[in-house]
Design a binder for these strands. Structure first.
Length: 145
DNA sequence: CGTTTGACTACGC
DNA sequence: CGCGTAGCCAAAC
C-alpha cells in the first residue's frame, strides 16, 4: 500500500503519465505538465508555459523499450513538434496513423476527436498525485493543480 | 563547474 | 494568422 519514498523526478513522472495514454489517443506537452505539481518556487502561471518545455525535454531522453508511447505526445497546436522532414517526425506520424489518428491537410490532429482526457482518478491516487478523498467527489474529468 | 539549448506555450503586437 | 519573447528544468557542451 505504501510506496517507498522513491525519488520521483520530473522526467520519471512524465514517462509514467505518458504510459497511460491509450492507443488511438494523443496528448500535448502542456496537458501532461498540468498533471504534475509545479516544482517549488515556480509560479503557476509561469509553470503553465515552462512545464510544457520540460515535458519535451523528458520525452527527448525517454528510455526506449519500456513501453513509453512517445509518439502520442504532440504540441498544443495539434501538430508534431519534431523538426519537419526529420526521420523522427515522419516516424511519429506514421505510427500515429497506424494507430488510427487522422491528420488534416495542415498536419494537425483534432484534439476534440482524439485528445486524451487524462489519467483516471484511481491512477492519480496510486501515484500520490491526488488525495484519496478526491475519489469520492470525482470519477473523471479532473481539474488538477 | 558555468553556459547554452531545447520534442513548448501563452501573450502581446 | 504570423512573429518575438520570457520562462529557470535537464542534458549536453
Amino acid at each position: 500500500m505504501y510506496h517507498p519514498p522513491e525519488p520521483l523526478n520530473f522526467n520519471k513522472l512524465v514517462w509514467k503519465i505518458v504510459q497511460q495514454i491509450p492507443e488511438g489517443r494523443v496528448s500535448s506537452y502542456g496537458q501532461i505538465a498540468s498533471m504534475i505539481p509545479p516544482p517549488e518556487g515556480v509560479a503557476a502561471d509561469q509553470y503553465k508555459r515552462l512545464g510544457a518545455r520540460w515535458v519535451g525535454s523528458a520525452m527527448q531522453v525517454a528510455p526506449s523499450g519500456q513501453g513509453i508511447p512517445w509518439q502520442r505526445v504532440i504540441n498544443s497546436q495539434g501538430k508534431i513538434s519534431l523538426p519537419k522532414g526529420s526521420a523522427g517526425a515522419d516516424e511519429q506520424r506514421a505510427i500515429l496513423e497506424i494507430e488510427g489518428i487522422d491528420f488534416d491537410a495542415e498536419g494537425r490532429v483534432n484534439f476534440e476527436q482524439v485528445g486524451w482526457e487524462g489519467p483516471s482518478a484511481e491512477w492519480l491516487c496510486e501515484q500520490r498525485l491526488l488525495p484519496p478523498a478526491s475519489l469520492k467527489k470525482h470519477t473523471s474529468q479532473l481539474t488538477l493543480f
